[in-house]
Design a protein around this nucleic acid. Structure first.
Lengths: 308, 308
DNA sequence: CAAATACATCTGCTTTTCTGAGGAAGAATA
DNA sequence: TATTCTTCCTCAGAAAAGCAGATGTATTTG
């Protein structure tokens, strides 16, 4: 790795001097003393071992053909530098770039697109990377920098992740239309005793439901475990059993075409949905997204995602 | 003109650190202490006001998406910088670029192409700018940097121009074939008395010829003054008169198709053909060209340009 | 639990860069 | 011709940037 023998400052001073045809003029443009500009020219010439500018005592300076050619190549360099700096500043101030979102919320398709569309309304230079992941990978993604922000269940927090509570998600029972349980006016976890259960067996949700049932002293009769919410829904729709879930999409129909019912439970601790990001100053885009997300979740539409 | 808030060194250190995924590793690559790299990252993050890398105590660092994007934009910047520096070094060391040549030697087409061809034999990235000019503009071109090197008559030198003698050019008489003067075995300037004269009236040559004739106490009978050698030759060929010149091309025929004779003179001070360049260290290309030129003028081919 | 790894922080040193004063050379002007 | 103006040059000292090395700490690894 060769050293940067001439700093950008030096090269820029040289370039401006060539453009101005004057050391004094360049010094004014650059807000430095003329001697600094003269020194810069000396350094550049010494480094390259050639006469790049001709100095005339009272008439300023003139670049040689080679000197002009060099200055011409420095200009785009400075401009590129400015572009990079611009992008750097835009990181914290502007709404542009790619927002990397991780979510452990299988029904995120029900609401994330709305929020993202609001975000992208004004600006165009905005991209999103949406990554479905479990609770653990979401958080480690935040920590190792592959994710800007994540939605996940607020249990089992890792150090270094700053979270904000989004919403409490009470559990509900998902049952096929016409299921015996839907006849009840009130439903408790105890009522699930001996009922065939389809379990969403993802890192946090699985343990959560098991804990819920254990707390209610219900021995689950698990007929199927799935790693996909839609598989759970379709199994339930097909009559394989019922499921305990927390969020629901905006459709009552499963992929299998069956009609599903969401039955509120009178007991059971809610799951905490949170947004998280790595500790430290986030760029503005991340903050804005997070704010919009929280705004949306305080609104009426968010209510439709849960079953009370 | 905004200041260059972050130096290239800083940006490069940041970039290398992101690439390495390690401050220590980057420090080794850059041959600096880890603390310097850490400080660089701090500076960049502080400047942009955003978290760009996630630091894990014993596992190195990982860039956030934004940090990676920024690093990716720094890389071409560094490469462009290297390119510029390469060109800079090539100025003094390599035979590339554009060589700006000015010449006050109207028959330069007779020899310059040979020399330039030799120069361009090995390398291909070589361009030439050939500018016909008079003695004064040639030298001021050197001084103001528009010319790298010039050929001109060594009289009336300007300060700041370093010259090397190329060749002494004795005057000769150009006459049409069959002219009365060609019958003589020896020809002196005095023999031109009353002979119609075509004068090349260029800044130095005109004065030179007039001085020559005055010194020989010959009153010139100027029938035409021209600013182009070929016009002089064609006028002479057409029988308008004779001319006193110093260099001759490698053809005896004028544009008008007439045959011309060059008759040596026994008297008359020669004109000094010199090469000149601005004082200071020239780039190697200029030196090489100048050397080749002088080499060529010590060879036998140069003799054909003068008439003894 | 100990060793190894790698980041964090701090202090003082070195190099780079800048300033400001004084001077000199060429150009413009009276 | 003498004077003034502009502009560049030089140099010493000061400010800033960059760096090394020591020390401390969190985390991983054996």
């Amino acid at each position: 790795m060769d050293d940067l023998r001439l700093s950008l400052r030096l090269l820029r001073a040289y370039m401006v001097a060539v453009d101005c045809g004057s050391i004094t003029g360049a010094a004014e443009v650059l807000n430095v003393a003329p001697s600094a500009v003269a020194a810069a020219i000396d350094r550049v010439e010494a480094e390259f071992g050639a006469t790049l500018v001709v100095r005339a005592r009272a008439r300023g300076i003139t670049a040689t053909p080679a000197g002009r050619a060099l200055a011409a190549r420095i200009r785009p360099l400075i401009e590129d530098y400015s572009d990079v700096m611009q992008q750097g500043y835009a990181l914290s101030q502007g709404l542009r770039g790619t927002l990397h979102i991780g979510y452990y919320a299988p029904i995120a398709p029900a609401f994330l697109p709305h929020i993202l569309r609001n975000l992208t309304d004004n600006t165009s230079e905005l991209n999103f990377s949406l990554q479905e992941c479990d609770n653990i990978t979401a958080q480690s993604g935040l920590l190792d920098g592959t994710l800007d922000v994540a939605l996940f269940a607020g249990d089992e927090l890792l150090a270094g992740v700053e979270t904000r509570s989004l919403m409490d998600l009470p559990p509900y029972v998902l049952a096929p239309k016409g299921h015996a349980l839907s006849a009840r006016s009130e439903l408790s976890l105890r009522d699930l005793h001996d009922t065939p259960l389809v379990l969403l067996d993802l890192p946090v949700a699985g343990a959560y439901v098991r804990r819920l049932l254990r707390a209610a002293e219900v021995t689950p009769h698990v007929v199927a475990t799935c790693t996909s919410v839609e598989m759970v829904r379709s199994l339930v729709g097909a009559g394989a059993g019922v499921a305990v879930l927390n969020m629901r999409p905006r459709t009552q129909q499963s992929y299998g075409g069956d009609i599903l019912r969401t039955l509120p439970l009178t007991d059971g601790d809610p799951l905490h949905l949170v947004t998280g990001r790595a500790a430290g100053t986030p760029r503005r885009l991340v903050q804005v997204f997070q704010d919009r997300l929280h705004d949306w979740f305080t609104g009426p539409e968010a209510r439709e995602l849960i079953t009370l």
